[in-house]
Design a protein around this nucleic acid. Structure first.
Length: 461
RNA sequence: GUCCCCAUCGUCUAGAGGCCUAGGACACCAGCCUUUCACGUUGGUAACACGGGUUCGAAUCCCGUUGGGGACGCCA
């Protein structure tokens, strides 16, 4: 049977980093095995689900390059089907109505805790005659789960995990208003969608025992499960909005490339020997569950940034110009300069935001900053003047030509090339850091350079 | 409280009993390269949580301790 995986987020917020990795792993697994990767929106919590969140999830996955097969399934639309499964269990005697009130339930939990027993429903309506039901109380429907033996999960990542059935209580299948609970919905949907491999966060591991009991009750074959460890924040605590749990679009806005994100997320919890830089094609070829680690990992911005710098250097110049143009508001006229300068810019940038910032020198004239100003006084300024006088006396404005002249001047004056280049850089770019200055000057052209120098220094030509 | 999972440099990890004086990557420090910065390059600091076993031999297997995490909803 061909592999079918799914990613099943609830649309209560953006697609966060943990969800993104889960989606990536499921996607890679499906692609590796030539199967399907499907998307299901778990929107049964009407109060918390929003359309905006659904949109954000779609956009997040698209940005990451994780394409899904077929149409997304909206879980709420299938509520009737879920309820049908519960009623089927009810008539088969595998489920029963329970009339316990919320207050009773709370009391049960407290009592169980006090006695050192697992917290949960005590099964008081399990074998009770429904005729004893309190009048006017709509019941919930609970699964009549096995009280003996144990339930085993043969997990693709965690190995064999088992728990005594006594630890598990009779879960609610249908709420008092007749709507299905998450546990029921997931099982029915995964079954109906033909999901063969459920890859999800570790936080679902204990749910899995209950879900397997449900599969058994419904006489369905459970899928294979794989629970991947959670991602923690830099402080080791659960990932919260405070540090890493931003939506993927936040990382996009921070200037990260999707391929860098994919590579980073892939290496968080998965490895292939000492490989670090892994293309998506390579990842598809290599990815499998046996190389997924079992321990949680921490989110490390520094490593993501490093990877991003790598992919930035690798990226096509035209693509990068397209990506930074909106940040810069660069007119069509300036695109040729950006394109010409991109080679030199991109190897110095860590993020698209950095890149855009450093690219401003090609887009607009900059007022010298404080450090640049220091290069435009005294001895430095004198050297600059001499360089300009010399440059003006010769024809040609290529990077090589300008550099040769600067070298000649430096040699004649017995100074280092930097002493000529730095004032020049300051006058032309307004900064003390930039791509090679002669290259910058060549791209800008003589006219623009002279205008900037005149504007930024007292030198008149 | 009950149950489940986890544990190698600061971080991500390699390691499936001898190949480990524990390897790589990021970060950090120092040198080199160099018109600045970055890249690149050379070197360095830095880890098997602890305690018991098993074994000729343990980072690797077993048990315990400690420390993290997760789950116990008519949320998903």
């Amino acid at each position: 049977m061909s592999v079918i995986t799914r990613f099943a987020p609830s649309p209560t917020g953006y697609l966060h980093i943990g969800g993104a990795r889960t989606a990536l792993f499921s996607w890679l697994f499906a692609r590796h095995h030539g199967g399907q990767f499907r998307l299901r929106i778990e929107d049964t919590d009407r109060a918390r689900s929003t359309e905006d969140a659904v949109k954000k999830i779609f956009e997040g996955l698209q940005w990451l390059g994780l394409d899904w097969d077929g149409e997304p399934v909206f879980q709420f639309a299938r509520a009737a089907r879920h309820a049908e499964a519960a009623h089927q269990l009810l008539s088969a005697g595998k489920a029963y109505p329970c009339y316990a009130s919320p207050e009773e339930l709370a009391a049960m939990r407290e009592a169980a805790k006090a006695q050192g027993k697992p917290m949960g429903y005590d099964g008081r309506w399990r074998d009770r005659d429904p005729k004893e039901a309190p009048p006017g109380v709509p019941p919930v429907i609970r699964l009549k789960a096995p009280r003996e033996g144990e339930t085993l999960v043969a997990d693709g990542v965690q190995g064999e995990v088992r728990v005594a059935n006594l630890q598990l209580d009779d879960m609610v299948l249908l709420r008092a208003d007749g709507t299905p609970t998450y546990m029921l919905s997931v099982v029915v949907d995964d079954h109906d969608m033909g999901v063969t491999d459920v890859i999800r966060g570790d936080d679902h591991l204990t749910n899995t025992f209950r879900q397997i009991q449900l599969y058994r009750a419904l006489d369905w074959e459970p899928p294979r499960f794989a629970h991947i460890p959670l991602i923690h924040g830099p402080d080791g605590a659960k990932l919260s909005k405070r540090h890493g749990a931003l939506g993927v679009e936040a990382y996009r806005d921070l200037g990260f490339l999707p391929e860098a994100m994919r590579n980073y997320l892939l290496r968080l919890g998965w490895s292939h020997g000492d490989e670090e830089i892994i293309s998506t094609e390579q990842a598809i070829a290599w990815f499998d569950l046996d190389a997924v680690g079992r321990s949680p990992s921490r989110f490390d911005m520094a490593k993501l940034t490093n990877l991003n710098a790598h992919y930035l250097r690798q990226a096509e110049d035209t693509r990068l110009v397209d990506l930074i143009a909106p940040i810069l508001g660069a007119s069509e006229l300036e695109r040729p300069r950006l394109l010409a300068g991109m080679e030199g810019l991109k190897e110095r940038a860590k993020t698209l935001v950095d890149l855009a910032e450093s690219a401003r020198i090609y887009v607009e004239r900059q007022t010298p900053d404080d450090k640049a100003k220091k290069q435009l006084e005294g001895e430095s300024l004198a050297l600059l003047g001499q360089f300009l006088a010399q440059a003006r006396a010769h024809d040609g404005w290529s990077a090589a030509h300008l550099e040769n002249q600067a070298r000649a001047l430096a040699e004649a004056k017995g100074v280092k090339l930097g002493q000529v280049a730095q004032p020049l850089r300051a006058a032309v770019t307004g900064r003390i850091v930039s791509p090679p200055i002669f290259e910058v000057m060549a791209i800008l052209g003589a006219e623009e350079c002279m205008a900037r120098i005149a504007q930024n220094t007292a030198i008149t030509l």
